[in-house]
Design a protein around this nucleic acid. Sequence first.
DNA 1: GTTGTAATTGATAATCATTTTCAAATATTT
DNA 2: AAATATTTGAAAATGATTATCAATTACAAC
Lengths: 143, 143
Amino acid sequence: MKRAKKKTFSDFIAQKGLKSTRQRDIILDFFLSTSEHMSLEELYLKLRAKHPAIGYATVYRTLKLFAESGIAREIQFGDGQTRYEHVTEGEHHDHLVCTRCGAIAEFENATIEKLQDEIADSYGFLIKTHKLELYGLCAKCRK
Amino acid sequence: MKRAKKKTFSDFIAQKGLKSTRQRDIILDFFLSTSEHMSLEELYLKLRAKHPAIGYATVYRTLKLFAESGIAREIQFGDGQTRYEHVTEGEHHDHLVCTRCGAIAEFENATIEKLQDEIADSYGFLIKTHKLELYGLCAKCRK
DNA sequence: GTTGTAATTGATAATCATTTTCAAATATTT
DNA sequence: AAATATTTGAAAATGATTATCAATTACAAC
Ligand SMILES: [Mn+2]
Ligand SMILES: [Mn+2]
Ligand SMILES: [Zn+2]
Ligand SMILES: [Zn+2]
């Protein structure tokens, strides 16, 4: 899983004529070891603890490359912070976002996905991506 | 419909101890006369054509008030521009967004809404709002 | 209508996340 | 090892939004 993503990324780098660098390796290792949905700032701060020399711009640039290569996905939960999550081949999910504590749960629902396709069809619309997020209070916070 | 929204807003203004001003009236009239999903900049530019003295900050502040009063809703389609749409009592809809031409279609699907509730229940999650957007190519653009 | 007071306005500066710039450093090819 | 193109980190720039503030305005009390 980590191996596969590293492979995907190095293939992407090679195919694009880019270079394999120490910073990209460090950031990739760190990203693959993190929990999901981490914001760029969070990521940068935690990274800087171990690797103080890595620049902010490099983290931004590298995460964009991860997304471009297909191993990560950019997500926005409306708090003004871009987050990145891991992309797993053939898997898709949507999110429940707790607006009090920030907890995020993931779910999949095949019926909803199918209905989305039907709706798109009825408009002659071709879906490329979609975004389904449920905002509210998680079980812990609603008590 | 326009009347009702004007009433809602003036009640809101009164109840909050705010003032009824020329600028707010102008912006409200303009907003109520526009098509949906207009970005703030678009709104400001079109408004400025007729009322050159109205400031950018005032437009921002006033649209926020519209949202707070319940006659408008802020929406983000991920292009970095905040948009505002009209809120109609008791109505809800989600969006199809064309990533090529920017066209926006609206849809409602009771089954999807019900499934969302069931998913939330199964997580003990209390939904406050949700966001469902289908991005892709509209019928015109996919040809 | 005049006055007093608090809210509002418009211009501008500030903010915040993100992107760009650029000279120095580095990776890869020859 | 030298040549070349990419990458890096720091700092400046950007773009959308928000805060600041002095001048203006709305409105309630007289
Ligand atoms: Mn996720
Ligand atoms: Mn709409
Ligand atoms: Zn919570
Ligand atoms: Zn289109």
